[in-house]
Simulated assay, not measured.
Amino acid sequence: MRQRNRRKQRGTEQDSRDRWMITYADLITLLLIFFVVLYAMSSLDTEKYNVVTGSLSQTFKNGSALPGGGNGLLDGQKGLNGTSPGRQSQPGSPEPGKGQDAGGAESSEGPSPTKSDNLKPSDRELAFREQEARLAELMGVITKYVKDNNLGDQIFVADKPQGIAITLSDRFLFDPGNAALKAPALPALKQLSGLFHGIGATISIEGHTDNMPLSKLSRYSDNWELSGARALSVLRYFVDKEGLTPSTFQYAGYGDTRPASDNSTEAGRQKNRRVEIIVLRQLQGK
């Protein structure tokens, strides 16, 4: 009896010592399952991967915008090949009579405009180019006339944003404090009038003075009146003597309000006493 109890006690102790093997076996099994799952996750389906990457590459290449075009997978109506369920179509082969946009969607509007159509200049652009060509030709002719006649210190030509500006010194055109044109200035004005025939642009004649007060003997009350009278004298020569169309011209007198140089020096005041003839740009580029 005593021996039987000893055997039973010895068997119980043996079972207690071997229980760790059960826990160890469970741990090994779990680790095995974990590594199997990791391996399964790291293994790619090559065929599916190629389909997905091909579709994405084609989308980015064509520049298709998924939200605007409605060709994304979120629509639930199209697969990776861009076709709807129940409909078979060959990639890149639109139905007859229909175009295809950059994202592969069919369009019934026909082919898009070519680059040559987009680059075709508008009527306004053609008119602007024609106007610029005339102004460039005008500036070239006047510059050559000034150079050939040694008038570089009396007539100045510049291409300004508002148009071609021809600036004539008051010494070239008038006597001090006077608005009557001097005889030596008439040939140059006659030359200009020939260039203004058919110019197709408005010509603005603007008189300017320095800030010195006029002599009490002057027939003009102030610089405003003198500058306006000088501009009007040039205008009347073009209209009355040369027969140019009056509607082509406009004139203004600015007195000393728009100086071209410093009025504190004699040289600056001389630059300020001037008449500007501006052939205005009437069209602007795009």
Rank of each mutant, 00 (worst) to 15 (best):
P246V: 04
Y220T: 08
G207H: 03
L186W: 02
L232G: 06
S247D: 11
S221Y: 02
A185D: 09
A252H: 10
F249M: 05
I205M: 11
L232Y: 03
S193N: 14
D222L: 07
W224L: 13
T202N: 08
R230I: 02
E206L: 13
F238I: 02
Y251E: 03
L195H: 09
G207P: 09
T245E: 12
H208I: 09
D240M: 05
R236T: 05
P187Y: 04
A188V: 06
H197I: 12
S247G: 14
D240K: 08
K241E: 13
A180Y: 00
R230H: 02
A185W: 03
L217N: 14
I199V: 13
G200A: 09
S227L: 07
R219A: 13
S218Q: 06
P246R: 07
S193D: 15
Y237N: 00
A252V: 08
S227R: 10
S221C: 01
L195R: 13
S193F: 09
I199K: 13
F196Q: 11
R230T: 02
D210W: 03
E225P: 00
L189R: 12
P213V: 11
N211I: 08
P213K: 15
N223H: 04
Q191P: 00
G207S: 10
K182D: 02
S218G: 09
W224H: 09
A201P: 02
E206N: 13
L232P: 00
A185S: 11
L244W: 06
P246H: 04
Y251A: 06
L217A: 12
S204P: 02
D240S: 10
